Simulated assay, not measured.
Amino acid sequence: MHQLKTNHRMWQFEPILLMCTLYLLATSVVAAPQVHETMTIMVEDAAAPWSKRDGTGYANDVVVAAFKEMAVDVQLKVVPYARCKYMVLNGTSVACFNMSWLPEFEGRIKMASQPIYTVNNDMFESINAPLPKSPKSPCTLPPGTVVGTVRGYEYSPQATALQSAGVVFENADSDVQNLRKLAARRLSAALIVTNDLEAKEQKARQAGTEDVVRFAFNCGLSAATIGFSLTHPDGLRALKMYDEGYRRIEANGVLKQIHMHWFPSQPVVRP
Rank of each mutant, 00 (worst) to 15 (best):
E37W: 00
I16L: 15
P15D: 07
L24S: 09
I16R: 10
H36Q: 14
A32R: 05
G57R: 02
A32N: 04
R53N: 14
T27D: 11
V35N: 10
T56H: 06
A46T: 15
R53C: 07
A26K: 03
D61K: 02
E14P: 00
A26G: 11
V29E: 08
L25N: 13
L25T: 12
Q34P: 15
P15L: 08
L24M: 12
W50Y: 14
G57W: 06
S28N: 11
A31H: 09
K52D: 14
V43G: 10
A47Y: 08
D45W: 00
I16S: 06
G55H: 10
V35W: 00
A47G: 10
L18H: 06
I16G: 08
S28Q: 14
M19H: 01
A46M: 12
T40F: 00
Y23M: 15
P33F: 03
A32E: 08
V43W: 00
S28Y: 00
L22W: 12
V63W: 04
T56D: 11
L22N: 03
K52Y: 03
T27I: 14
P33T: 10
P49F: 04
A59L: 03
E37S: 13
G57K: 01
V62C: 01
D61M: 05
V29S: 02
L24Y: 04
V29R: 03
K52R: 14
S28E: 13
